[in-house]
Write a protein that binds this DNA or RNA. Structure first.
Lengths: 242, 242
DNA sequence: TATTCCTATTTGTAGGACAAATATAATAAT
DNA sequence: ATTATTATATTTGTCCTACAAATAGGAATA
């Protein structure tokens, strides 16, 4: 049992205990707020040393599944489905290909929520977007341009009201800014190409589409970005296959 | 230092060691495959007991950041950005609202990749989709209908070639099927409404759009689903605010 | 030179000890 | 009788030691 391996990694006692705890939580249908037995009890029940149990608990704690207030013991919590991404969503930990995948992911998502945004957007939202865009123009080529960029897209995600989507955007933001910065030079030739066709997209353009209620034009403009990243990404993919 | 709290949770030594290890990995710019010092060395260097260090390492191991082949010591690995989602992406661990958020997230993403799909799809892809759709029709109201449903959407995600998107779809699939099943009755009235307008969407319809190359029609049909979920989800959100 | 064996190293597991924090019960004060 | 204080017990967090299992690398042998 001990030398069972998955992905060439041994399945340790900690792995098994972790799985059993998850199973326990699910089958007992415990709700957030439900107390967990204390460590000694659990360790004895599972027949393992407290250290092993604590390692497993530590993992679940990291995922936000359990919260431990000293003395009251542990209580269950609803985890954030994206919480596990937080630690590894870092440009320094992921490969180039993964980073570009995430960039493409984000553009796809933003494209995908456009119809929802057009349905839900209010006058107040549009006013806020106008302020953000104006600041962005003033601050162009400035260090605060990035902040404006982030604010604009954040606002769009907010309009959906979907907390998971909002959180996703927040978590991957460091990756997006890093990748855009790193591959700026690579995107340039494609950008110039598009500039000739007058297809370069600014936030002001997007906002204009929103105001006139032209979803299709909005989508076309966003799709431009998708195209740029997609072309570059496909080249990278081909290279990495060799 | 020890009674520092974040989110009302004490910041333990393990938390600090975990953060330091991550910092170490990032600043040393270690690549996948790079060896890590052994446990004793690390524990001494960080001035903590081996047990504490092991708890932190256990977390990183779960995230897929380090791999530990017995005796060769630990080596770094490229984590999957979505790996942390695996354990908590479960209908039994998340709230209704979160589950519905994920459903909406999926529809948005699928809507977002449509232009990319239309650009990249090949004749062979279309043939495969035809087979899947045919099987789906035959197996309608059958337990295998779910498998066909999954196969169809999986194939679409595959066409993007984006591994992160593909993995995302795989991980959240249990949630999607669960939520669709659980709220089937709630979606029905809205569905009937749409049926009157002849706006019910089948895989065959989508495939037809793909064949004729009509992206906008394809998007409209997908957007129908978005609308259904969005309406229902917004009601739920209002209720939960009270 | 190739093979076998031994030793040292490293991770995985067990178990004990104690500090810090706090919930609960017991005691004292008004 | 009610409130304030103190003491005790419980629980998590941390450290330490010991040892088993596996294996890498070198030593001994054929």
């Amino acid at each position: 049992m001990k030398d069972l391996k998955i992905n060439n990694q041994p399945v340790t006692l900690v792995d098994q205990v972790e799985a059993k705890l998850l199973e326990y939580i699910k089958t007992e249908d415990l709700n957030p707020g439900s107390p967990m037995p204390n460590e000694q009890t659990l360790a004895k029940a599972l027949g393992v040393a407290r250290g092993v149990l604590r390692e497993a608990l530590s993992r679940l704690r990291m995922l936000g599944l359990i919260e431990t207030r000293t003395q009251r013991g542990m209580v269950l919590k609803e985890p954030s489905i994206l919480g596990g991404m937080l630690r590894v969503a870092d440009p320094l930990l992921l490969s180039e290909l993964s980073l570009l995948d995430v960039l493409e992911f984000r553009v796809a998502l933003e494209l995908g929520i456009s119809s929802d945004i057009f349905r839900k957007i209010t006058k107040k939202d549009i006013e806020e977007l106008e302020v953000i865009v104006e600041k962005g123009i003033i601050l162009e080529h400035n260090e605060y341009a990035l902040a404006s960029e982030y604010a604009f897209h954040s606002k769009l995600y907010e309009i959906t009201g979907n907390q998971t989507i909002i959180q996703f955007q927040k978590i991957i933001n460091p990756i997006i800014t890093f990748v855009k910065d790193k591959f700026e030079e690579n995107f340039k030739p494609i950008n110039i190409e598009l500039e000739k066709e007058n297809r370069i997209v600014t936030h002001a353009d997007l906002l204009e589409c929103i105001k006139t209620g032209d979803v299709n034009a909005y989508r076309d403009k966003l799709d431009c970005h998708f195209l740029i990243y997609s072309i570059f990404l496909n080249e990278k993919r081909k290279l990495s296959k060799k």
